[in-house]
Simulated scan of single mutants.
Amino acid sequence: MQRTAATPPANRGANCKISCYNGNSGFADDAAAANAHVGRYPQGEVFPMDYIKLIQQGESETVEFKKEFPSSASDIAKEVAAFANNKGGLLFIGVGDQGNIVGIEQPDKVIQRIVGVVRQCDPPLQPQIKIEYFESKSIVVVQVSKHNVPVAVDGKFYIRVGTSAVAATSRDLTKLLVRNLLDQINVLDILDEPFAGFSPENLAIASSSSNEGSGHREEDAEAERVKLYENFQGVFLVHRWRPSTLPGQKADIVISLVQHNQGPLTARQVASVDYFLGPKFPGSSYHKDNYEDDFALRVSAYAPMLCLAKVNLLSGEVITLYRYCDFPADL
């Protein structure tokens, strides 16, 4: 890889940028790189507007700020590995936690340290690294892509939860492995048989008469649907079943939580769940605090039933969810 010097030349404006490292090979000869900035700053280039918007929005699942290179280099490795194990992301070094651009000294040396750190990941990573300039302040930007196998640091795996890199549980690691496997195979081939003769209604051409007056109804329905997402904070109940092996029962059922996008479940803000299945089930309720498997409840039943779940958040708030747990009656 070829590096260019980090010091912005005096004869250019403060808002200019320069690419430094693409992760494909080693640094060029340091002596040659020392004068590489001459004539390398195109006139008029400015700090990317996309970066400005991201910084204004603050840290997120895919954006991390570091005011300076941390005292422990492994902190950078963990952040990068967590991005690689998630959707990828951008690490800005020289930006404070509140989005204030402070810049860093000697960005070239920071890049060299980052290169050494990411090569210690298992497997070694090759992010794109570059220096950007904002009002004469140097910012190192590390762009990490999603990796096709889980990435470890010192034998441990990390994932991105909200705005933090956290150690992955065994369940998290299983999800990573399954996700990466599904990315590499054609899932539609596996699921094709149950959809024989499938004709998607959403693509059907409706007559003009059937659409008369439907515009407002659709808008109202969509507003209500969005409101449900907000009320439930993206948390929903799901269930799976199989024919029961127990005498007198027809189905074994697993009821659990699922998170749409990001929310309390992915941010680990759910303390417990209380399930209510009705008087035919022993006990008045089932209390679950097993975060590792999404607060799953396992029961056997001889008939479908309505499940009510009280999701207790760490904040003290309670989200009430419902799920009709059905299965074929002729089991």
Score class of each variant (00 low, 15 high):
Arg298Leu: 13
Ser315Asn: 09
Ile253Val: 15
Phe134Leu: 05
Arg323Asn: 11
Phe327Pro: 12
Ile111His: 03
Val238Tyr: 14
Ser72Pro: 01
Glu219Pro: 00
Gly44His: 08
Arg160Gly: 09
Ile185Tyr: 10
Leu91Tyr: 07
Ser256Gly: 02
Cys20Ser: 12
Leu297Ser: 07
Ala77Asp: 06
Ile255Gln: 03
Leu176Gln: 11
Phe327Glu: 09
Ile185Gln: 06
Lys288Tyr: 05
Asp172His: 15
Glu292Arg: 13
Ser74Met: 13
Pro328Cys: 06
Pro247Ala: 15
Phe327Tyr: 08
Thr320Leu: 12
Asp289Arg: 04
Phe69Gly: 03
Phe27Glu: 12
Lys67Trp: 00
Lys156Tyr: 09
Phe198Tyr: 15
Leu125Trp: 04
Arg323Pro: 00
Pro124Asp: 07
Ile139Leu: 06
Ala296Arg: 10
Ala28Asn: 15
Pro150Asp: 05
Cys121Ala: 11
Arg171Val: 07
Lys78His: 09
Val299Lys: 08
Asp97Gln: 04
Asn35Ala: 04
Ile114Met: 03
Ala81Tyr: 10
Ala223Tyr: 09
Phe157His: 13
Lys146Tyr: 14
Gly26Met: 12
Leu182Pro: 00
Leu308Gly: 00
Pro328Asp: 02
Tyr275Met: 00
Lys53Cys: 12
Tyr229Phe: 12
Ser72Arg: 15
Asp108Cys: 08
Ala10Leu: 14
Val141Phe: 01
Phe276Thr: 01
Ser60Met: 00
Ser285Met: 04
Tyr51Thr: 00
Leu188Cys: 11
Tyr158Lys: 08
Asp252Phe: 15
Val46Glu: 10
His147Lys: 02
Arg268Glu: 15
His260Arg: 07
Asn22Thr: 10
Lys67Leu: 06
Asp97His: 03
Lys87Pro: 01
Val115Pro: 00
Pro150Met: 06
Gly263Pro: 01
Ser25Thr: 12
Lys146Trp: 08
Ala10Val: 15
Pro107Val: 00
Tyr133Leu: 08
Val63Thr: 12
Gln120Pro: 00
Phe47Lys: 01
Arg119Asp: 14
Ser19Glu: 08
Phe65Trp: 02
Asp326Tyr: 09
Asn211Thr: 13
Asp293Arg: 14
Ser207Arg: 11
Gly316Lys: 10
Pro200Ile: 02
Phe198Pro: 10
Tyr229Cys: 01
Phe157Ile: 15
Gly94Ser: 01
Glu292Tyr: 07
Pro48Asp: 02
Val235Gly: 09
Gln249His: 14
Ile114Leu: 12
Pro70Ala: 05
Gln184Lys: 14
Ala296Cys: 07
Gly283Asp: 03
Gly248Met: 08
Leu176Ala: 10
Phe92His: 01
Leu182Val: 04
Gly263Thr: 01
Val142Ala: 02
Thr320Met: 09
Gly213Glu: 09
Ile253Asp: 03
Ile111Ser: 04
Ile111Gln: 03
Val140Gly: 03
Asn180Pro: 00
Val80Leu: 13
Pro304Ala: 10
Arg242Pro: 02
